[in-house]
Amino acid sequence: MAAPSFQGRHMRQPSKNTLLKVVILGDGGVGKSCLMNRFVSNHFDEHSFHTIGVEFLNKDIEINGEMYTLQIWDTAGQERFKSLRTPFYRGSDICLLTYAIDDRTSFRNLALWRNEFLYYADVKEGTTFPFLVVGNKVDVESEEREVSCEEARAWCMENGNPPHVETSAKDATNVEEAFSLAVESWAQLEAKLDRPYIGDTVDLQRQQPEQRSSCCLSVGSNTE
């Protein structure tokens, strides 16, 4: 395709990319920023500091032949930042609910995060929102694990059945996959919305992705 030559000024390529706003939520210290940095710049910083309020990064990604630009908002998990981060929920397309598998509290707080998000994101009632539940730090020793994959899956089943994935930002396990999964899940919901209403069959179709979404992209060593 011909590249229009623009003089004078920096300009991103005219992209037909679908823009998706992604918000990463979860307790402080579960590794939200690390996930984002691993995903966007494939970089991991052992000693990264607390996020102040929010952080933002862009990433282009191709999924099923479609080009997407993910606008990722990484939020500060500490309670004192609550009123600073909530304004950013509005207009989100995808929400990553994160916990650390070696931190039970962070897992228990998932529900709080989910509710906080739904409250402030102004998601239309009755719609399914593309959440993705991410259990980070899968690189820790197995004796340090506090949340099992099954447990997490069970939680998902009870909470709208979002896809679940265990990742490690440290050794890059499943990070790309997590984001891809999130986008796919978005795309499926979107496709459903676009489809004209066809009566009862919609309900049946809704069942289908649930089956699919229960798939847990686990890391081999942890499924033993």
Binding site: I52, G53, V54, F81, L84, P87
Partner: peptide, 10 residues
């Protein structure tokens, strides 16, 4: 200042 930063981002 932290709030200012975040609000400006918003």
């Amino acid at each position: 200042v932290e709030g200012s930063y975040t609000f400006v981002a918003k």
